[in-house]
Nucleic acid binder design. Structure first.
Lengths: 166, 166
DNA sequence: CGCGCTTGGTTGATGTGTCAACCCAGTCGG
DNA sequence: CCGACTGGGTTGACACATCAACCAAGCGCG
């Protein structure tokens, strides 16, 4: 069924590993998201924003800083921040006349502090501990290599566009 | 900043590996999806469906078989198949009086055959070759272990619900 | 028979992501 | 000073995912 040899095709082992990986990621992601949503009413996106804000010294960041940290497109950021503000998790505060800062609210802080321990515990249980230290270290290395490879490749396609959504 | 010790918290190395992994996955997924979308007009979801249909002997499957293969919720499947039919990639054909079969159309077949080589080449370039055979084999093993771990855990929570959307 | 349960599937409301277009304040070259 | 360009951000239309509710066979069993 699978064409072998010199072509771009994957051989059976490669195919199998790739599909195992895809299934693993989907299973893990679904599990984590459902947990976050059902127990704490936060989506993965909410969580990402709140983590970044809560880890910053001041609890405030500009939208484009969040964009750099999360790798989201700016329109997604804008939409999601609007929704989060409506739910009281963050607040847009005007500061330097033009371009508001995004501030985490007490409610937002409470939400992330409530869910963080359980979230971390799940990462440990289903990911970190199953890998174990050695294999986990290897994964970290390969992950960075892959990101570099893709970045380098995309750099070739569109050199000038840096932080826009190339 | 990070609480260490016996708690659920991740230590620095673990945190770093986990975040590298997340970034890698997002970068890779975004790259693959954009490629598929821009060059071939297919979403990742379209691709998944078409792969399954094109790999089946008859080019036809029931919706719930596709659901088993893709791990999608049934409503997502229904919505997406409706949209794909509207675009001419698949067709719902009535057969056993009740419950249509999903058949890949000539157009759908052409679409996936057109994009498959380039898609496989990208998986090879950015994933398989960066890992290399040894590390890739390890990843495959760990992935299966993780899926087992999560499945076992979820089995504890909700034993009777098998294929529904527990 | 008739009641209820399960299975496969659809529907609609709502929340979320993406794309393209736009806005507005600097800024830089003339 | 004026026009073009850039960077940060918003908007609207649309594609997509999720949830809960529903529908319609078929099955089991009293």
């Amino acid at each position: 069924m699978v064409v072998v040899g010199k072509g771009p095709w994957l051989d059976d082992d490669e195919q199998k590993a790739w599909r195992s990986y895809l299934l693993m990621h989907k299973t893990l992601e679904t599990h984590m998201e459902r947990h976050l949503q059902r127990e704490y009413g936060l989506s993965k996106s909410d969580f990402e924003i709140l983590v970044n804000l809560s880890e910053s010294k001041t609890g405030r960041m500009r939208a484009f800083e969040l964009g750099r940290a999360t790798q989201w497109e700016k329109s997604r950021m804008s939409h999601h921040l609007t929704r989060m503000e409506k739910r009281g998790l963050i607040q847009k505060v005007a500061c330097d006349s033009r371009y508001p800062e995004i501030a985490i609210t007490a409610e937002g802080m409470a939400a992330i502090e409530a869910c963080a321990p359980a979230h971390a515990a799940r990462i440990r249980e289903f990911f970190v501990d199953v890998f174990g230290p050695d294999r986990l270290a290897v994964l970290g290395e390969v992950s960075d290599e892959i990101v570099d490879t893709i970045r380098k490749h995309e750099g070739n396609d569109c050199p000038p566009e840096v932080s826009g959504n190339c």
